[in-house]
Amino acid sequence: MPMLKLIKEVLRVGNATVPYPFVKPDLVPGFRGKPEYDPIQCIACAACVIACPPNALNMETDLEAGMRTWSIYYGRCIFCARCEEVCPTGAIHLGDDFELASFSRDDLTVRADFRLASCTQCGAYFASAKSLDRVLALLDQAGLPPESAEDRKALIKMCPECRRKTDLPRVKVIVQEAFDGRL
């Protein structure tokens, strides 16, 4: 009779096996899968690259060509979501795709090329064009006083070096006024 008992027990318990890959599996909320990248939203600021613990994210700047290349190699990603938490634009987030197996390492790579912005004074490349756009949009949103808005924006379109050079004479005037010409 023990055999019959066993069959009864098996029928009662049923089948525990997840019928993957024939059925889509239920994933827990907060499952950290493949980082999904949206290059349209990305401003090439490199916050994710700095945060990435295993250097799966990578960025190269070519100052000659004025291009910046963002890349991810999924083979090195440890799915920690640090890129997601630092991304200021929501361009990268961890989705629920775990089916990453691939025959070659090239298929595990995503790359995106971005243009750099050149300084309005000296023409040197200094930041990605999209990040500059975004800073200007944020300034608009913050609501600068209209008399200084154009001036501020013109400064932001310069490289740090030219910005300093342009700003210094004005600072000098301000300081002299403050000290009433005693300097």
Binding site: P39, A101, R115
Partner: peptide, 29 residues
């Protein structure tokens, strides 16, 4: 999934992606 792909039971899902910034491409606030 990995073993199923290796043995040819399933197709590989991943593909290399190379995006180049478009002419009028802006990130949204």
């Amino acid at each position: 999934h990995g073993f199923a792909v290796a043995l040819g039971l399933l197709k590989q899902k991943m593909q290399m992606v190379h995006h180049v910034q478009g002419e009028d491409e802006h990130s949204q606030l």
